[in-house]
Every structure is written in C-alpha cells, then in structure tokens.
Amino acid sequence: MNKELTHLRVNGEEREIAITPNRLLLDALREDLGLTGSKRGCDDSSCGCCAVLIDGTPMLSCVALAASYEGREITTVEGLGGPGELDPVQEGYAEMGGAQCGYCTPGFMIATKALLDRNPDPTMDEIREALSGNLCRCTGYMQIYESVKYAIEKLRAKSATQAPATR
C-alpha cells in the first residue's frame, strides 16, 4: 500500500504525515504524531478510551480512518489546558480521584470536556448520559462523577471572576 501525505489539524497545529489509507486516526495520533494520550482499550470499539474531539464532538479515533478527517479540528487530551496549565476538567480528575490506573481517563476527560463546553450546568442524568460511552474498570464511576462536579464548580468560579473584566 502506498503512503500518502496527509494533513491533520491536531490541537491547533497543522501536522503533515505520510500514512497508508488504512491508517486509523488512533494509530496516526499515537505512532505518527507521538500523542500517546489517547488509548486503545478494546478490540471492538466499545470502550471510549480512544475518544478525541472532532470539531468539538467526541468521537472514537479507533473507528476513524485518519485520512478522512483532514481539514477537521482534532483535539486530544494533550490539547486540553494550556502550556503548564491544567484544564479545569483535568484538575477535577486529579483532585477527586477520577483516575486510578488512568487508562480510561483521557477518554473520560474528552467526553467531559465536550459535555461542559455545550452545557456548563448539567444535571446528574445528563452527566451519566454523556459519559455512558466510556468504560472504567477501576473507579466504580463515583469518583468520576465527583471529578466532573469539581470541574463544573471550577468553571463556574472562573467565569464569575472573568465576567466583570469582559463587561
């Protein structure tokens, strides 16, 4: 199979890689771009560990052919937060024990980020629904929900202090 030059926009940067047409986005991210945050947690696209944002929507990079996502805005867990600064979502998982072995965590963070970007004040049912495509073998999910609530509070506090400045 011939490799083709493919342009991916990942975490705000234009990246050029030479890949075969059957290259999955997950493998392109991990192996061609060295972004090993996204994980492969299953063989049948059922676990959510590989979730990334595509134009803001969480999707499974293990069913996406990389070349089909040229021109789209791809955000991996590495793209959350800024240099030297954690996103409130990441802070939540760190503070509230939302990560144990950590394998599922990038996928959960991506799903959480997508939820809070659209709906900064979700109900418990909405949180459960938004995270229902991600599996975790360690935490029993309760700490994960606590992490999401922590992030919600953090974001609320942040927007309260920022509001006067933008007026």
């Binding site: 969480p58 799903a111 495509g133």
Partner: peptide, 9 residues
C-alpha cells in the same frame, strides 16, 4: 443504539 460516542459517528 450503542453509546453516545458511536451515535456521534
């Protein structure tokens, strides 16, 4: 159908 991540795709 499946979960939210599969339904997004």
């Amino acid at each position: 159908v499946a979960g939210p991540l599969q339904r997004n795709m």
